[in-house]
């Protein structure tokens, strides 16, 4: 849309900058404070100074002394990657089937997928736990991954994306003599790559940040980073320095991943908008 060039328009643009900038700072402040606290010297932890000075890595040293941070990082990464890939694959297949085909019972089946959202984790975890115990995969990463291989979120979002996909292209692929399987991988997936990347990152982050299910399955405690945090929380009060350091470490890989891939995600949204 062409912007009318004028005083009013400029004022509104400035207002938009102020509103979005203010909201952004508000959202990011707790994260800044997390790292600021983790970098203060132990005697300065309670300091209200906005800048942590002098810098100190003592909190990180304490965290590394108590926890096997490297091992936890590896475990958490493997777990989150497997879950995200599984959810992306099942979501793609189901979303494509729902959007591209009309078959008897589509609505009912789709409702069944959505319905998996109706039953919260607090209800399904016990049956899942018993099942995993029978399968003998408790206390393994596989035990954490298995019940998480399909999510309604991925199915719903990918169904929407395939639905918005031009039908003529699917028709053209069919007239070219492509089967559904090859249409999916050679026509739909390449065109959905931005959406798939964005969703994949979202799913990875969700899996990375999962806390209660790993806590239940991996009872030989502290096998993933999120569980390590509890080491520094106490009823008498928290050990803020190492707690913030471990929290910072638990969040760092995801933040870095986002910083590296953000351009691609944003480009993806822009490109799909200009389609």
């Amino acid at each position: 849309m062409d912007e009318p060039v004028g005083e009013r328009s400029r004022v509104r643009t400035v207002a938009a900058h102020v509103a979005l900038g203010g909201l952004g700072v508000l959202c990011a402040f707790p994260i800044y404070w997390l790292y600021a606290t983790s970098l203060r010297a132990p005697e300065d932890v309670y300091s209200p100074a906005p800048l942590p000075w002098p810098l100190s890595v003592q909190s990180y040293a304490d965290a590394f002394r108590v926890l096997d941070v490297g091992g936890l990082l590896l475990n958490t990464t493997v777990m989150a990657a497997l879950i995200a890939l599984g959810q992306l694959l099942t979501g793609l297949l189901a979303g494509y089937a729902f959007a591209a085909w009309d078959f008897r019972g589509t609505g009912l089946l789709y409702l069944a997928f959505v319905a998996t959202w109706l039953v919260p984790f607090q209800v399904t975890m016990l049956p899942n736990y018993v099942l995993l115990a029978r399968l003998g995969v408790l206390n393994t990463i596989a035990g954490v991954v298995l019940p998480s291989l399909c999510t309604a979120l991925a199915v719903m979002l990918l169904r929407q994306h395939v639905q918005a996909f031009p039908r003529e292209l699917l028709e053209a692929a069919r007239l070219d003599g492509r089967g559904s399987w090859s249409t999916l991988w050679t026509v739909v997936v390449p065109n959905l790559r931005p959406a798939l990347a964005a969703l994949g990152i979202l799913l990875f982050v969700n899996a990375w940040n999962e806390y209660f299910w790993p806590a239940l399955v991996l009872q030989r405690s502290n096998a993933v980073l999120q569980l390590g945090l509890r080491s520094f929380m106490g009823t008498e009060g928290n050990d803020w320095g190492p707690l913030m350091a471990t929290a910072g470490l638990a969040c760092l890989p995801v933040l870095v991943l986002y910083l590296v891939l953000q351009r691609q995600i944003v480009d993806g949204f822009v490109r799909s908008g200009l389609r």
């Binding site: 959202c27 940040n209 806390y211």
Partner: peptide, 21 residues
């Protein structure tokens, strides 16, 4: 990026920093 960033924070880590705030 700024508005999106809290989503990247693990809920337990977020809870810890808010407890502190």
């Amino acid at each position: 990026a700024l508005v999106f960033s809290p989503l990247l924070i693990a809920p337990v880590a977020g809870a810890a920093v808010w407890q502190w705030l």
